[in-house]
Design a protein around this nucleic acid. Structure first.
Lengths: 375, 375
DNA sequence: CGCTTTGAGGCAAGCGCTTTCCCCCGCTGT
DNA sequence: ACAGCGGGGGAAAGCGCTTGCCTCAAAGCG
C-alpha cells in the first residue's frame, strides 16, 4: 500500500540496496546516484518503514523516559531536558517515549517490558522508586539489568543507584545514576531554619514508600539531631537498605506528618500539625507543591508568613519564586540533570565514575522564612 | 542473541505460529497448549520483538503526542490525560511518544515524519499551530492528511480545525478536532472586567503567530468593541483565514503588548504597559503564567492587587488558585479534553459530528479582580 | 458405518528493510 | 599491455514475526 524502498529503487533505476545506503549514509555512493535517489524519494514521497528498518538493523531509535506524573512540572522539566538532548537533532534523532508510572513499580515494570519489546535504544528512569511492594523493586532491578545486557543504555535520574547485584559485584554497573542530594539539601534547609532561631519545626513529608521522601526526612532529622532536638519516636536517619520494617506511618515524631506530593495533602497536613502543636513557628515541606498547600492552610488560619510562621519547600519549581512571599526552598538543577541524563542516554557523555554522580541541592533562602515571632 | 519466537516454540514443542497465536490471543488455542506456551515464555524470559511484530502485522502500538513544551503544565496536563487513556491499560497498551515541538511548525513536521516512519497508531497534536512560516502550515496539513490516509488516527486537541482541503470537500475530515473556546472565554473575561467598571485595560498577548494568541486577543477586543471601547489601530477580530497580513506586531493598540507565553515576558510587558498608560486599572494576560509575571511587575511597582490594579489570566493552571491573591482566570478543562482526545485516538470514542467539538472555557472570577480604585 | 463438519495446529510465504558477499569497471604500476 | 586494486553498485539472504491456507483428527450426521 505504501511506497517502499523497492518502489524508490525502481523509480531511480538503482537497486534497493543502493537506496538504503543513500538513506543511511554510511556507505560511499557517488554523488550522481545519491541525487537521483533523493529525487526519487522526494517525488514518491517515500517514508522509511521504521519497524522494518529496526528489525533488519536490530536497533531502534526510541528512547524511553519513565516519570511518575508528567503533569507535575518536576518531571515535566526533567523530561523536557532529556528530550532536548535526545530529540529531533538533525541526524540521529530519537523519538522519546514518555511513560507515566504514577509511581507504581508495577507499572514501571510494564512500561519497561514494553520498551524492551520496542528494543529501545535507551531508557531514562526518573522519580522515586516505590519500595512498598516488596518483590517489585527487585523485579525492576532485574529487568534493568536485562535491558542493559541487551544493549539498551539505562540511566537513572533523581533516584538512588541500583543495588549492586551480589553475583556480579565486580562488573559494570547496569545503569548510570544521577542522584539528587536530597539528604544534604534537606539538612541544610532545616539548619537554615534552626539558625534563624526556630525550635518548633513541623515537617510534612511525601508518600512514605519513596526513597526521595525518606532521604529528605533523614536530612531534616539529622539537622534536628545535630541541634539536640531529636524528635521522640523517630528513628533518626540510618541504614537505607532495609525496606521491610513497617509500612511507613509508624515511628514518626509528633511534628512530622505524612502527605502525598500534592497541594491538598500539604494543606491538610499543615492543619493537623497546627492542631498537634499550636506554637509551631515553621513548616518544612517535602516539596514546593506541598509548601504551597501549607501556605494556604496557614493563611486560612489567619497566620502570616513569615511573620508568624516560616514555610520552606524543596525542588525550586518555577512557580516558587512567584509565591507570595517568595518561597525558601532547595534548588534542584532539574534541567541540567535531565540534559545530562539525556546525553548519557545518547552515549554522548561518559557515565560518571563508579556509575553514580550526586547532583547538588542548594539552599535558596527567600522571603518565606524569617526569625520566629519571639525573637 | 535474544530469545525468539522459534525458541519458545521449540521449548513448548509447538510451532511458532501457535506461540504467536497464544500471545496475540486472537485465535482459538486449547487451554493445555496455551498454558504450556505461556510457561515456556516465562521460563525463557521471552519478550516479543516489537519491530518484527509491527512489520509483519503492519501496525504498531505507538501513539504520538505533539506538544509545544512538556515542561509547561498546560501541556503536561493534556499529555498526562491522553496517556491515561492510551497508556498501559491491560490488553491494548500503547506507548506514547511525547514530542516537544517548541511551537515550531518545522519541528512539528519532523516529528510527524518520524511518527509516520514508526507507523504510529494515532497522533494527538496539541498547542497552537505556528502560522508564521508560510509553507509549513500547509505542509503540516498535508502530512496529517497523508497520515490519516495511511490509517493513523489524527486528533487535534486545543488547536483550530484543519482547513478543509478544497479538492475533497465532501470527504471525511482527516482529523478529529477538540478546539478550546479561546475567543469566547477571553471575551467573557474582559466583559467581567468591564462590568466591574474597568475602562483602561491592558492586554499582554502571547507570541503573535499562534492561533491561540490571536483568538484570545479577538475575544478581548470583541468585548471591548461591544462596550464601545475599540482600541485605535486594532483590526477587531474578523476573518481567521488570511495569514499573510503582516508579521504580527503591527496593528496592535496602545494597550496591547506582545509577549511570549512565559513569566518574564509578562513581567516586562506589564512594565511597558504601565509606561504607556500609568492610569491602567486592569491587566489581562493571555495565560496564567504571563499573569504571574504581571503580578510580580505590579507588586514591584508598589501597586496592590486587586485594590490598585486587577489582574486576570487564562487556562486556570493548578497554581493559579494558590496565587496571592487567587487569580481570576478562564478555566480550560485540560484534563477532560486530553482524556477525550486520547479516547478518540484509541478509537474508543466517536469523532464529534463534523469532526469538530468546541470545548467550553469558563470564567473563574477570583480575588485578583475587583472594581477599579475610582469606584 | 462412512462421510462431512469443525476445531487445533503446522507450514511457509511474505512484511520492508539492512548488510554481506560478490562482481564489474576503470585506474595504477611496471 | 596486463595483473592488481579499489570503489560503486547489485543480488540475495535473512531479521522475527503474522497469517492465509492446509492438514489432521475427533466429533456430528444420516
Amino acid at each position: 500500500m505504501a511506497v517502499t524502498l523497492a518502489d524508490v529503487a525502481a523509480h531511480a533505476k538503482v537497486s534497493s540496496a543502493t537506496v538504503s545506503r543513500v538513506l543511511s549514509g554510511n556507505y560511499p555512493v557517488s554523488e550522481a546516484t545519491r541525487t537521483r535517489v533523493l529525487r526519487a524519494v522526494d517525488e514518491l514521497d517515500y517514508v522509511l518503514n521504521g519497524p522494518a528498518s529496526a528489525l533488519a538493523a536490530a536497533s531502534s531509535d526510541l528512547v524511553g523516559i519513565l516519570v511518575n506524573d508528567i503533569a507535575d512540572p518536576f518531571f515535566g522539566i526533567i523530561a523536557g531536558a532529556v528530550q532536548s538532548e535526545t530529540g529531533g537533532t538533525a541526524g540521529d534523532e530519537k523519538l522519546s517515549v514518555v511513560c507515566n508510572t504514577g509511581g507504581s513499580a508495577e507499572r514501571e515494570l510494564t512500561y519497561l517490558t514494553l520498551l524492551q519489546r520496542q528494543r529501545a535504544a535507551a531508557v531514562v528512569l526518573t522519580g522515586g522508586a516505590t519500595e512498598g511492594t516488596a518483590g517489585h523493586a527487585d523485579a525492576v532491578a532485574a529487568k534493568l539489568a536485562r535491558l542493559a545486557a541487551a544493549g539498551t543504555r539505562v540511566v537513572l535520574c533523581g533516584r538512588p543507584p541500583l543495588p549492586v547485584p551480589p553475583e556480579a559485584a565486580g562488573g559494570e554497573p547496569p545503569a548510570a545514576t544521577l542522584t539528587f542530594d536530597n539528604r544534604g539539601g534537606a539538612q541544610r534547609l532545616t539548619e537554615h531554619l534552626l539558625s534563624l532561631g526556630h525550635r518548633r519545626i513541623g515537617y510534612v513529608t511525601g508518600p512514605p514508600d519513596r526513597t526521595t521522601t525518606r532521604h529528605r526526612l533523614e536530612g531534616h532529622r539529622a539537622a534536628l539531631a545535630a541541634a539536640g532536638l531529636a524528635e521522640p519516636g523517630a528513628g533518626s536517619g540510618s541504614g537505607s537498605g532495609s525496606p521491610g520494617s513497617g509500612s511507613g506511618s509508624g515511628g514518626l515524631g509528633r511534628l512530622t506528618v505524612h502527605g502525598t506530593f500534592d497541594r491538598s495533602s500539604g494543606y491538610d497536613a499543615t492543619l493537623e500539625l497546627l492542631r498537634r502543636e499550636p506554637g509551631l513557628t515553621a513548616v518544612v515541606a517535602a516539596n514546593d507543591t506541598i509548601a504551597l498547600g501549607a501556605c494556604a492552610a496557614l493563611r486560612d488560619q489567619g497566620l502570616r508568613i513569615p511573620q508568624d510562621v516560616s514555610v520552606a519547600g524543596f525542588d525550586d519549581l518555577p512557580f516558587s519564586v512567584d509565591a507570595v512571599p517568595a518561597l525558601t526552598t532547595v534548588r534542584l538543577p532539574l534541567h541540567a540533570a535531565g540534559a545530562r541524563a539525556g546525553r548519557i542516554a545518547m552515549g554522548r557523555e561518559a557515565v560518571p565514575p563508579g556509575g553514580v554522580a550526586t547532583v547538588r541541592a542548594d539552599l535558596m533562602a527567600r522571603a518565606s522564612t524569617a526569625p520566629p515571632p519571639g525573637r
